[in-house]
Simulated assay, not measured.
Amino acid sequence: MEQKMFDLLHAYRKFKPHMLMVLIHLCYTFGYFMIEASFNHGMSPHVFVTYRYFVGGVVIFPFAYFFERNVRPKLTFALFLEIFVLSLLGVCLAVNMCFASMKYTSPTFVAAMLNTIASITFIIAVPLRFA
């Protein structure tokens, strides 16, 4: 009996990252179905993205202010412009396109396509000599 428990514990430790990865993807898929339901009830994807980033900013702001107060660099105009452009084009545009595509396809398709981002990025980077 003790040997069986030891084998089960060893298997759990060995496959814990895999189980967590599957759990995270299940949570993402559940979230996409919830988002799809809100879109079917009339919410605009662009409004949803705005609410999402507003709530995220409000939640993260106190932690960033108190824990990173003495570490962060001085906010110059060039740094502010760089952060603005990267957040606008890098994150906001991608999430807006993802949620807008959810209006035309299923959440399952969107969840599957998000897993191909890394490989498509590599395929684009090879001809541009970034990889």
Rank of each mutant, 00 (worst) to 15 (best):
E2F: 13
K4H: 15
K4N: 15
M5V: 13
M5R: 14
D7A: 11
L8M: 12
L9N: 15
L9A: 15
L9C: 13
L9V: 13
L9M: 15
H10R: 12
A11S: 12
Y12R: 11
R13E: 08
R13Q: 12
R13V: 02
F15R: 12
K16E: 14
K16L: 14
P17R: 04
P17S: 02
M21G: 14
V22E: 13
V22M: 14
L23R: 09
I24G: 11
I24A: 14
H25R: 06
L26A: 13
C27F: 15
Y28P: 09
Y28M: 15
T29P: 05
F30Q: 12
Y32C: 10
I35G: 03
S38K: 09
F39P: 05
G42Q: 08
M43R: 08
M43F: 01
S44Q: 12
S44K: 14
H46K: 04
V47Q: 10
V49C: 04
V49K: 08
T50N: 08
T50P: 03
T50M: 07
Y51N: 06
Y53E: 05
Y53G: 08
G56H: 04
G56D: 05
G57V: 02
V58A: 10
V58H: 08
I60M: 15
I60S: 15
P62R: 01
F63W: 07
A64W: 02
Y65L: 14
N70E: 14
N70Y: 10
N70C: 00
V71T: 14
P73C: 05
K74V: 13
K74E: 05
K74I: 11
L75M: 08
L75I: 01
L75N: 02
T76L: 06
T76H: 03
F77W: 08
A78I: 01
A78H: 09
A78K: 11
F80I: 05
F80Q: 01
L81W: 10
E82P: 01
E82Y: 07
I83P: 11
V85T: 10
L86P: 06
L86C: 11
L89D: 09
L89W: 10
V91N: 09
C92K: 00
C92Y: 11
C92N: 06
L93Q: 03
V95W: 03
V95R: 03
V95K: 09
N96W: 01
N96G: 01
C98F: 05
F99K: 01
F99D: 03
S101R: 01
S101N: 11
S101E: 06
M102G: 10
M102P: 04
M102A: 12
M102T: 07
Y104F: 02
Y104A: 10
T105D: 05
T105M: 12
F109S: 07
V110I: 13
V110P: 03
A112T: 09
L114M: 15
N115W: 15
N115G: 13
T116Q: 02
T116D: 07
A118L: 11
S119P: 07
I120T: 00
I120C: 00
I120P: 06
T121A: 03
T121D: 10
T121Y: 03
F122P: 08
F122E: 09
I123M: 04
I124L: 02
I124M: 07
A125N: 01
A125Y: 01
V126K: 08
V126A: 08
P127S: 09
L128A: 08
R129Q: 09
F130A: 04
A131Y: 05
